[in-house]
Amino acid sequence: MPIQYAGIVSEHEAVRKSVGVFDISHMGEFEVRGSAAEEWLNGLLTNDVSVLDDGQGQYTLLLNEKGGVIDDLILYRIDAERYFLVVNASRIEADFFWMSRRLPACGVELTDRSIEFGAVAVQGPRSLDLWCDMAPGITLPERNGIAVYEAGGELILCRTGYTGEDGFELFAAADQIGHWFDQLIASGAVPCGLGARDTLRLEKGFPLNGSDLDENRTPLEAGLGFFVKLDKPGGFIGREALAAQREGGLPGILVAIRLSEKAPPLRHGYTVLAADGQTFLGELTSGSLSPGLGLGIGMAYLPPAQAAIGTDVFVVIREKLYPGKIVKKPFV
């Protein structure tokens, strides 16, 4: 995926107001099959796999023993003995290595199908209309759901995305995906690049793996406690570390910071200071200019005592201090 086609801002606006399409073929796809699939996945992932019915999906996290995030991913249940996992491109090998080492002797089969699949994400309020006009016979699944079709090969549709807008992700054989991409554009979707993908997700406060999440940060620190079911039967890898954090307190909390006035865009690595203009609080893990707000936005891990919504902070840009505030996610 290129950084941009026509321009980050126009692509961003197309997704917010109409419909855009992203080539996300870099994403990884795993399949898990077998009679023990549910139980095995539930012991590896933070969310509760057992609540899923056929055709449903959930955001979830794969943790190490310290509770650190190996990856954040979406798990879909196709049926009781077949699950589809969409994982981050940069984590395909780490995830597969971690998971395959923990396979039971029988009852579960794990396959990395990343090379077989290409994928596109169609996002924006017009996504469904566009799809209905383009492929009237192929019904999209419900929100967060998955539907599997045969359409000149395997076609998997997932009603998920990374922009905060309605839309879906389409997985098909790698040699078919270019055809789908072209057809979606011919039907009115605006081609969008990595730049808009980043501003769209950041405006919604969605974390980016490798920037906002890594193996030294837990989902509780990242504000993803909703996707962590500490009390599910059987537990999961990393559970004890998270339970201890919940008892003893968090070392940092990922907060959303919005600048208060027109200023340069925020960037990864910029320093965040307390309202006294001197006390170091943390560094931005993500940053940009919100096309929707026209203001700099970013996220940073701050000490919990200084992480309350409404707290005044400064962000340092080229040795100048710019005032901002900790705000509620999403930004937009």
Partner: peptide, 28 residues
């Protein structure tokens, strides 16, 4: 890509060839 911010030099500043004198920022 889309330029969103500029830091301009002060009038009267003396520039040597090759010296950075302004910062231009896009979303990227």
């Amino acid at each position: 890509t889309d330029v969103v911010y500029l830091e301009l030099p002060a009038v009267g500043r003396v520039l040597a060839k090759g010296e950075p004198f302004a910062v231009i920022e896009s979303v990227k």
